[in-house]
């Protein structure tokens, strides 16, 4: 039984958590926007199509692994994906990269290993990597059957071809100006969604009594669902979320795994951030699909009674 009400709101507390999330995430979002500016200025459209395998399925798998050599956390991923899509990256590959990069990122692998020391660190890290990558590839594969206009935000894809010419003749300072122009616009465009997402995360993080989810720990399906919900609410960066998950000692490992896979793919701030690139309908379908698929995969793992 709860000792305090399930919902108690304090405006200064909400504002405090809201600012903390923004101050923590702003450098990473900015990093993504700068990377987007560099891609716009220096990555020729033809190179993108040459780099990816011709076979669409292989291209989706390669996009999922791109995060290992091109690491971006979930705050910075949206400006990068927007730019890559405008540069001609197939939407299916863009979605796969966006969902996988915050998980297959080497920093995330190391932090998961460190956080779960003594709690099956290798198994947890490996399963996080494999399930995260598998779900991202699966999402990309499903998206490959849909028309891009039904997935992307209207007007996202413009004609980039006319923007690719003439760069070779531009002076370095002009090129730098182009990079900063794109970076500024992308940051300000995406920051709007980040602000809304941070507000949602701060509201749930400060006003909802976290004792509410504790009784759910006993039942595996409910534990998995509730930790996926908690991952969304907390909206912690994927580089550090393992340290939080490792402390949820009353929950089964499969539920912690669900927390670690679902959170970087779809937390509250991402729900709004994705709006900078994708249609509202697609985001809702993606959210529901990820929740069900990750939930079922983790539940299946829970029934195997693995020794970890």
């Amino acid at each position: 039984m709860l000792t305090t009400p399930w919902f108690q709101f304090s405006l200064p507390d909400f504002q405090y958590a809201f600012l903390s999330i923004l101050l923590e995430g702003a450098p990473f979002l900015l990093g993504g926007a700068i990377l987007s500016g560099l891609l716009e200025e220096f990555l020729p459209q033809s190179l993108m199509t040459r780099l990816l395998p011709m076979n669409p399925r292989t291209a989706i798998v390669v996009s999922g692994l791109l995060g290992m050599i091109f690491p971006v956390c979930e705050c910075g991923i949206v400006p990068v994906v927007r730019r890559l899509l405008r540069k001609g990256l197939p939407v299916s590959c863009g979605v796969t990269y966006m969902l996988a990069a915050p998980i297959v990122n080497p920093l995330v692998i190391l932090s998961t290993l460190a956080a779960f020391r003594g709690q099956g660190a290798v198994e947890m890290t490996l399963l996080r990597f494999v399930i995260g990558l598998t779900v991202a590839i699966l999402a990309g594969w499903v998206v490959s059957f849909a028309a891009p206009f039904s997935i992307l935000r209207p007007g996202l894809l413009g004609s980039e071809a006319d923007h690719d010419h003439g760069h070779a003749a531009a002076s370095p300072i002009d090129r730098l100006t182009n990079v900063t122009t794109v970076a500024s616009r992308d940051f300000l465009d995406v920051a709007v969604y980040f602000v809304i997402g941070a507000a949602a995360a701060a509201l749930f993080g400060t006003a909802v009594n976290q004792e509410v989810i504790l009784p759910l720990a006993e039942n595996p399906p409910l534990a998995i669902a509730s930790l996926m919900g908690l991952a969304s609410v907390l909206s912690v960066c994927s580089t550090t979320d393992a340290f939080i998950a490792a402390t949820l000692t009353t929950f089964p490992m499969a539920a912690k795994l669900a927390f670690l896979v679902f959170g970087p793919m779809l937390d509250f701030k991402l729900l709004f951030l994705y709006g900078a690139a994708f249609s509202r309908r697609f985001i809702l379908l993606l959210a529901a699909g990820l929740f069900v698929v990750i939930g079922l995969l983790c539940w299946r793992l829970a029934t195997l009674n693995l020794a970890w």
Binding site: A17, L19, A207
Partner: peptide, 25 residues
């Protein structure tokens, strides 16, 4: 919306948690 965080910082009220968040967490 982008000016909102700046307005909160200027107000100077969001610098610590109250007992509400302690109870909720």
């Amino acid at each position: 919306l982008l000016l909102l965080p700046l307005a909160i910082i200027v107000s100077g009220k969001a610098t610590a948690y109250s007992v509400t968040t302690v109870q909720n967490r």
